[in-house]
Each structure stands twice: as structure tokens, then as C-alpha cells.
């Protein structure tokens, strides 16, 4: 890749939108490509910093695994959780069929 002058094609934008699960309208792709290229063009300055031998820092705190007591605790009532669901069937979340349609 060449981060100095990011080459981001319309097909790349379509591909990233698919990965991101965003149905971007065709008419919006062009503008989005330009916006992303401008931002990536600025971010390219990261390439000028010498990072040799540096351990990536994913988090500001020095973290260790924190284990809880292995005791059951009451969960949230199912009715409270389902209250926000856009579609339900009984105590279940309703979704369209998971396995593909004609192509499956």
C-alpha cells in the first residue's frame, strides 16, 4: 500500500461499506470517497514518525485480568430487555431468515 497518497477507489469504498454493514447509497459513494481520502491524506503523517522497536500501546492502564467471584448473580428481567426489541415472538427476538434466500 502507499499511505503517502492513499489510493482509495470507489470499489474500495463499497468493500469497506460492506465490511461495516452500511448500505451506502450509490449517489453518496463519490462524496464519501473524497472525504475519506482527505482524512487519510492527513493521517499519512503517521508514516513520518519513527516507530521502530516500539511496543503498540492498546490501553493507557497497565491491565491485569481481574477475576470475579464465581457466584451466580441475578440477571436483568427478560421483559425489561425485550422492551427495546424492534420485533419479538414470545420471549424471542424475531429476525429474518438467517440462511440465504434463493442462493442457498
Amino acid at each position: 500500500m502507499n499511505a503517502e497518497s492513499p489510493s482509495l477507489s470507489i470499489d474500495d469504498v463499497r468493500h469497506v461499506a460492506k465490511l461495516a454493514r452500511l448500505a451506502i447509497p450509490e449517489a453518496r459513494l463519490d462524496a464519501l470517497q473524497h472525504e475519506l481520502k482527505a482524512i487519510l491524506g492527513h493521517i499519512a503523517q503517521l508514516q513520518s514518525v519513527n516507530t521502530e522497536g516500539l511496543e503498540p500501546m492498546a490501553h493507557p492502564l497497565t491491565l491485569v485480568n481481574r477475576l470475579g467471584e464465581d457466584v451466580p448473580e441475578p440477571g436483568m428481567p427478560i421483559a425489561d430487555l425485550l422492551r427495546n426489541a424492534p420485533a419479538t415472538e414470545g420471549v424471542f427476538l424475531a429476525v429474518p431468515k438467517v440462511l440465504g434466500g434463493e442462493s442457498s
Binding site: Q47, L54, P56
Partner: peptide, 17 residues
């Protein structure tokens, strides 16, 4: 792109710290 952007940004994060 992960190494060129994300991993590098995390390395620079350490430099900033």
C-alpha cells in the same frame, strides 16, 4: 491496512505517553 494505520497509531500512542 492494519499495520500501516492501526498498529502504527498504537506505537505512536506509546511515544505520546
Amino acid at each position: 491496512y492494519y499495520d500501516a494505520y492501526y498498529r502504527r497509531a498504537l506505537q505512536i500512542r506509546r511515544l505520546i505517553k
